[in-house]
Design a protein around this nucleic acid. Structure first.
Lengths: 197, 197, 197, 197
DNA sequence: TATGAATGAGGATTCATTCAT
DNA sequence: AATGAATGAATCCTCATTCAT
C-alpha cells in the first residue's frame, strides 16, 4: 500500500477528518482515534505526519486560516477603490462559506482553545491583526489616519460579532444580512465624516 | 454537625473553583479532580451537589449569566428614556467586569462548548435572545419597528464582536473604547434615521 | 469496599506484586497493568498510592533496601568485636534471603535501571556507600586506616561479585559457599597484615 | 547500486548504534526507531539484517563478548607461566576498556535482561563458565585441583564485583585499583597455600 | 539494498463516577 | 455532609513489525 508522495494526500485527509470530527462532536470529544477512524487510517499514522495531536490541530487551524487568507487576497487584488477594498475584506470574512456551520463551529472551537495553547494563539493573533491592518489601510484612503484606525476597529468588531452570533445562534443573521448590516454601518459613518468636513 | 446554609456555600465554592480552573488551564483540561482540589473538597462531593460534571458546568454558566442579568436589569430599571435604555444594555454587556479575563475566557469557553451540549446551548440562546429583545424594545421608542429590529442586530453584533476581539486579543479595545465605539455607532445611525424622516 | 486505613495494606500489596512481576517477566515487560492484575486491583489505583509507575518502582527498591538495612543493623548490633562486625555485614548481604531468585533478580534489574533513573540511582549510591562505610569502620578496629579502606573495597567487591554470579548463573556459588569464600578472603588478608607487623 | 561488503558495514553500524543508544537512554527506552535514527538508516532495515529486535540485541551482546574473548585469548597466548595466565584473565576482564562507561553500562543492561531472554542467557552462561574455566585451569598449575577451583570462584567473583561497583558507582575503584586489589588477593592466598604445604 | 508508509497492539496515565464509611 | 478508596474506560502516544516500491 505505501505509495510515494502520499504525504500531501494523507495530510489533507487527516485535516478534513479533524474538521468533520470537531464539527460533529466538539473539540473536547475529538479524540485522535475518532479522527483517524473517520479518515480511514490507523491512529498511529497521525504521529507519522503531524508528530502529535497538537501538531494536527495546529495544521488544521492553519489550513482554515490559509483558505480565508487566499480568498481575502484574491478579493483585495480585484478591488480598485478604497471603499472596494474595505468591502473586499468584509465580503471575504462574511462570505457564505464562513457561515457554513461545518467551518464556523470549528473556527470558534479553535478560538476558545487558542487562549490556552500557544501554537494556536499565534495563528489567532495573526488573523486578528491582519483583518485590522487590511481595514485600516483601506480606510486611510477615505479618512484621516486616527479615524481610519477607529473605524477599522468598529468594522472588524462588527464582522466578528455578527459571525459569532450567527454561528452560535443557528443562522441569524445569515451571510447576506450580515453584509447588509456592515454596508449600513460603513455608509452611516462615512456620510457623517464627510458631513463634518 | 452539618452547618446551616452549607449548601449555598459549597455550591458557590465549587462554581468559583470551576471558573478559576477554566480560566487557568482551559475547558478541555478542567477535570473534576482539578476543580475539587482547588475548591479544597473531595471530588466525590461534586456528585452530591451537582449530580455530575455537566451539572456543575451548567450551574457555572448559569451563575455567570445570572450575574450579567442582574446587572442589566438594575441598569434598565434606572433608565428613563429609550436611549438611556439602549445605553443600559450596552453598559452592562461591555462593563469592565465583562472584560476581566477571568470571566471573559470562561464565557468564551462555554460558548464554544454550547454548540455540543444542549443544556449549555439553552442558556446561550436565552442570552442571545434577551439582549436582542432588550435592544429592540428600547429602540422601538426611537425608530420604526423593522428598523429597530435591524439596528438591534447591529448593536448586539458589535457588542459581542468587540468583546470577542478584546477577549481573544489581550485587551484591545478595552471596556471604555468599546463603549465609545458603540455610542458612535448609535449616534451615526440615529442621526441618519432622523435626517431621513 | 473502601475501608479506612487501606493505605499500608495496598502499598505493601502493590510492592509485592511489583517484585513478583519483575521476577517473572523482567523489568522491561513489567507493565502497570500486569502488576495491578497480579495485585488484584485496577491499574488506576497505582496513581492513587504512588503517583505514577516510577513512584511504585522507587518504593519497591526502597522496600528491598530497607529490608536489607534492617537485617544489617540487627546483626551489627549483636556483634561484639571488630571481626564480628565485618562478619555481620557479610552475613547480611550474603544471607540465603539475598540469594533467593525472587529478590535477587529484582535487585539486579534495579541496578541496571538505576543508571538511567535518578530516583533509583540515589538509593543505589546509598547502598553502595553504606556497605563500604560499615566495612571500613569495622576493619579500622583491626588495621591501619588506609589498609582498612582498601580491604573494605575488596570485601564489598567480593560480596557483590559472588552475589552477581550466583544470581546470573543459577545458584553457583550459593549463600554458604559465598560466605565461606569471604571468610577465607578475610583470613588470608588479616593473617598477612599481622605477619607484616 | 549495491556496494560489495555492505552487509558487514551495516551490521557494524547498527550494533554500534545499539550500544550508543543503550548507553544513553537505557535498555528499556532503546527502541528500534531510536537505534535506526542514530545509525542513519530506516527502521525497516533492521529486519533485513537481524530479523527482529531480539536478533539485533543478541548480535550486539555477542559482539561485546567476542571482543572480550579476543582480548583474553591474545593475552593468554602471550603468558608463559601459570601465574601469568591467571593475570592475563584478570587484565583482560579489568582492562580500562571494560571500565569505559559506554561499554560497561551496556554489559550490565544485558546481564539484567539475560535472566529473561534465553538467547542472551546462553551467551551470558558461556561468559561466566569460560572465565571460571580459564582461571581454574591456570591455577591448577599452582594448587591442588579442588583449591584451584575454589580460588577461581573467588577470583572471578572479585573481578565481577569490582567491575560492577565501578560501573554502578561512577568510577570507584577504577581499572588500575581493581587490578591491584586482585593481585593482592592472589598473593595473599597463594602465599598462604604455600605456607600450608 | 533500502526506504518510508502503515498498522494495531500495548504502554502509562487521567478521568468521571460510584460507594462504603 | 463529606470523604477517600476504587474502578474501568478512554486518553495520547510509542512501539515492533510488515510490505510495496
Amino acid at each position: 500500500m505505501p505509495k510515494l508522495g502520499m504525504e500531501a494526500v494523507r495530510r489533507r485527509q487527516l485535516i478534513e477528518a479533524t474538521i468533520d470530527t470537531i464539527h460533529e462532536v466538539g473539540f473536547a470529544a475529538s479524540s485522535l482515534q475518532a479522527i483517524a477512524r473517520r479518515a480511514g487510517v490507523s491512529p498511529g499514522l497521525v504521529a507519522h505526519y503531524f508528530d502529535d495531536k497538537n501538531g494536527l490541530l495546529e495544521a488544521t487551524l492553519r489550513a482554515l486560516f490559509d483558505d480565508l487568507t487566499r480568498d481575502t487576497v484574491a478579493r483585495l487584488r480585484a478591488a480598485r477603490t478604497p471603499r472596494a477594498r474595505v468591502d473586499a475584506v468584509i465580503e471575504a470574512n462574511l462570505s457564505p462559506r464562513q457561515f457554513d456551520p461545518r467551518l464556523a463551529k470549528v473556527w470558534l472551537a479553535f478560538w476558545a482553545q487558542a487562549m490556552h495553547v500557544p501554537s494556536l494563539a499565534r495563528i489567532q493573533r495573526i488573523y486578528q491583526r491582519r483583518m485590522l491592518d487590511n481595514l485600516s489601510h483601506a480606510l486611510r484612503g477615505l479618512l484621516p489616519a486616527h479615524r481610519a484606525r477607529e473605524l477599522a476597529h468598529g468594522v472588524s468588531g462588527l464582522i466578528d460579532g455578527l459571525w459569532l452570533r450567527a454561528t452560535l445562534g443557528g443562522g441569524q443573521p445569515d451571510s447576506a444580512a450580515a453584509r447588509r448590516l456592515l454596508r449600513d454601518y460603513l455608509d452611516a459613518h462615512l456620510e457623517r465624516e464627510t458631513a463634518d468636513a
